[in-house]
Amino acid sequence: MDKKERFIAAIKENEGFIYKIAAVYTNNTEDKNDLVQEIIYQLWKSLDSFNQQSSLNTWMYRVALNVAIFQLKVSKKSISIIPIDEQITNYQEKDDSDNDERWKIFREQIDTLNLLDKGIVLLYLDNKSYEEIAAIVGITKTNVATKLSRIKEKIKTKIHKNL
């Protein structure tokens, strides 16, 4: 299996997370599609600098989150990228209204968090262990635990307030 084939296999394995990251860090479908492409492009471009000190998955999560931040900086200028083939971005949109409602509530909660907490929560929701979160984010395991506990409390209080 050559480098490109290995990369494609890794992308396919993690595409769910890439799409979810793009969905959380953007506010519309066009930006989401741009971010998915940008993450995949940057992952491919950075693949040679992957030093195997962490697992490929951990590295991919880290790059994906970093690209999302980088994209925020660029999107402030409201520049759209060159249009690409419809088939690449025209993926299945959700038409389940119940899911949409749940996603809306989810976004409301997530968007109240700062960028650091947001990254930690997304990894936690993706079932990453505290060790993995610490490795991706670059803080200690204890710090991850403390922050998660604080975030859980914050979300709980906020939801109770809204009820």
Binding site: E15, K20, I84, Q87, Q92, K94, F106, V121, K152
Partner: peptide, 30 residues
């Protein structure tokens, strides 16, 4: 609570994987 949001997150992931990026699509994105 936060853990209740997990199901929404997982569900979003399931929807995303249905998108099924093809080799050609990934190739083009690079």
């Amino acid at each position: 609570e936060l853990d209740d949001l997990k199901s929404t997150w997982q569900n979003e992931g399931n929807t995303a994987t249905q998108n099924n990026l093809t080799t050609l699509m990934i190739n083009n994105m690079t």
